[in-house]
Simulated assay, not measured.
Amino acid sequence: MHYTLHQLQIFLKIVENKSITKAAESLNLTQPAVSIQLKKLQDQFDIPLTEVIGRQLYITHFGNEIAITAQKVLDEVATITYKSKTFKGILSGKLTLSVVSTGKYVMPYFLSDFLNQNKGIDLVMDVTNKSKVVKSLVNNEIDFALVSILPDDIQLQSEILLENKLYLIGNHTAVSKINNDDLDVINEYPLIYREEGSATRLVMENYLYRNGLQSAKKMQLTSNEAVKQAVIAGIGYSIMPIIGLKNELERGDLKIIEMKGFPIKSNWYLVWLKNKSLSPVAEAYLSYIRDEKSKLKSAYFSWIDNY
């Protein structure tokens, strides 16, 4: 066997994307270059790693088994690199995070300086919905998660990073149509929801339930950006975290609709499993957050206090 680490890396991208074309795009390589490396790896096995049915690429059972082993090999190689840097006095290793989708407007600002100060750290950050973030926590797959609602069935430790405010949001023509003193108006206009499993959707549904409200028409979109664009276009209204609306509010594309019960307030929490043994990199990041979070909030998020 004479397979290379490069071939294993390429094969893992093919497995991840189920596509040679997408794997090539992800790796910034040409499609022929990826195909050649896959063939060289395949030539070392008598059993197929992949198969093409119709125009779709599939990974065989054997291919999936090889991918699991390949990932272990590459993880061990990464460990060698990290240990080498550690002996040189360089903080190195992997920092893994899972972030609820709206948290993408928060988390980068609490990472940038730390990563710039510690070039030996590799960041792996998954941006997804609350249900998948919680699953990653339960399975102990990550160092930290960013959530706006603390799960009540997991023992966690947490650090508050930032206040989270949610408002009823419409486009620039919507505000004039609403009587701000009449909550029943929400029954008359279409509300745009996030998908099941989203923390924002949970907040919206709790607000409606507490006030005995039910939207006459309900639409569901699967990302905060999609909801934002739909509201701007005038398709409906939504209850949204203000954290991702700064530019649109300043331009006047979106408007806050003053309504009883708003803003709905919570916090952005950095959380990790209670009694988890943090790696040196995770310990260093937690120390950085505790020392710098007030400064970072003032530098990047003071505008929230205006609303």
Rank of each mutant, 00 (worst) to 15 (best):
N116F: 12
K130T: 04
L123F: 09
K72H: 11
K177M: 11
M125N: 04
D152W: 03
I142Q: 08
R55N: 15
F110D: 02
I59W: 10
F87C: 05
I66P: 14
Q71R: 15
V185R: 11
L150H: 10
K132M: 08
Y167S: 11
Y167D: 13
I154D: 00
L49R: 09
N187W: 09
T50G: 00
T128K: 10
S98A: 14
D143G: 07
T50E: 13
A67P: 12
N140M: 09
N129S: 06
G63R: 05
T96F: 00
Y167W: 15
N187F: 08
V127G: 08
L91N: 05
S98G: 05
I66L: 15
V52S: 14
V77C: 02
T69D: 08
I169Q: 05
I178V: 15
N64L: 11
N179H: 13
T69A: 04
G103I: 01
K130W: 14
Q157C: 03
L91K: 00
Q155H: 06
V52F: 07
T102N: 10
N179G: 01
K130V: 03
V73F: 05
K88A: 05
G63E: 00
L166Y: 14
L74M: 11
P190V: 00
V185Y: 15
E159T: 13
T173M: 13
Y105C: 01
D113G: 05
L161F: 10
G54W: 08
Q157D: 12
K85D: 06
K85A: 05
I169P: 09
N179P: 06
R55E: 11
E188L: 12
N171C: 11
D152H: 14
V138P: 02
Y193A: 01
D75H: 00
L162P: 10
L161Y: 08
S148F: 02
Y105F: 08
V77E: 15
N179A: 08
D184W: 00
V99R: 12
V73R: 09
Q71I: 01
